[in-house]
Design a protein around this nucleic acid. Structure first.
Lengths: 193, 193
DNA sequence: TCTTAATTGAAATGAACGTTTCAAAATTAA
DNA sequence: TTAATTTTGAAACGTTCATTTCAATTAAGA
């Protein structure tokens, strides 16, 4: 029977993600990926198919990694207020610890490719849907707990928060002043109380 | 004496802007620019120097075009409330009339290149500074008029609005529902009143 | 141990990349 | 008309692009 895949697919995806995140899709060459993964060209093509296909896997990997991290952070928050604050704190922490000011891979990719690549567009639509659904759930809980107001529906607040998160990620590319960003987040969340 | 430049530089910049806006910097090839401008390769290099140099001119052109448009829109608003609403209405209109869902050229470029090209980074820093200064001025006026509250300083509100604008531009790439976006803007501005 | 099938390395594919070159054409002032 | 200088067209520059090819290597089941 055949030889089996020797490399760790997850590790390879991790390395590929770092490159795409740093340079963007069009800014990343196959040679960059070969160098970063220390995989052979043909191994990459055998295992991932094409640059775009690999990138789609990278996006999914990045998305699920973020979800996992979010899950861990939220495990300790048992009410909607803590939850929404933990979410924004996670993004803030991401900004402050990113030495290269890369921003969010998904936001960047949306801006670079959503209007060009149909597969990317539908990934982004699905990502938006999921994120907003998650936020809507949190807001809805907060409204049930009477800690968030009902001036707007949970759905409306969710879109507002989704938009604020993207704004935060864009702002964090050039502004990494912790206090200013913390205050910005407080202003964003103020509307809920 | 020499032959003078025959083509209209502004028209060329307009056409180049359209291409870069549609495809992004790395997604645009010199051939794309030759095709779009119907200028010769060498004419482009004679007149603009390089792809990056041309792109810098495109960015400035786009920025000043936006400023001009903003100036016209704001000519009719004589108080801070009208002004800030006119600003957000302008962005909303931009989103709703953009058939190709390209988003904002400057936001896109910031996400693609700010962490890679020093010249782009400093352009973006200057753009951010100017935009925030403009917003701070409007907020400050509104606070003097007692129509905006003073819960936060004008400077803090300006950063908040700057971030919200970027979020709006990102959101507008996939969501073009006028009512949802109008409501989103109302939520963003609510904190000021 | 032999068969089987995937991984690997290295080279090659042709196309596209940004940029340069240069002679011919064009235009203006003298 | 001539001299000066830029624009223009077309080809070519060397490099890099994503992808393919294929023989050699590897490792597992029979």
């Amino acid at each position: 029977m055949p030889k089996t895949e020797t490399f760790n697919r997850k590790e390879v995806l991790q390395k590929a993600t770092a490159v795409f995140h740093q340079k963007g899709y069009n800014g990343t060459s196959m040679q960059d990926l070969v160098d970063a993964t220390s995989l052979n060209r043909s191994s990459i093509y055998n295992s991932f198919g094409s640059k775009l296909a690999m990138f789609m896997e990278v996006l999914s990997y990045y998305q699920s990694t973020n979800k996992d991290q979010m899950g861990k952070e939220l495990a300790h928050s048992h009410n909607a207020k803590d939850t929404i604050e933990a979410i924004f704190d996670m993004y803030l922490n991401d900004i402050l610890t990113d030495q290269d000011r890369k921003g969010c891979l998904i936001v960047n990719c949306k801006s670079e490719m959503a209007n060009q690549e149909p597969m990317i567009k539908s990934f982004m639509e699905q990502n938006q849907e999921q994120t907003i659904a998650m936020l809507e759930d949190v807001v809805h809980n907060g409204q049930m707990e009477k800690v968030f107001n009902e001036d707007q529906t949970a759905s409306q607040y969710a879109l507002y928060l989704y938009s604020a998160i993207q704004g935060l990620r864009m702002t964090g590319i050039l502004n990494t002043n912790r206090e200013e960003l913390k205050n910005l987040i407080n202003m964003v969340l103020k509307i809920l109380y």
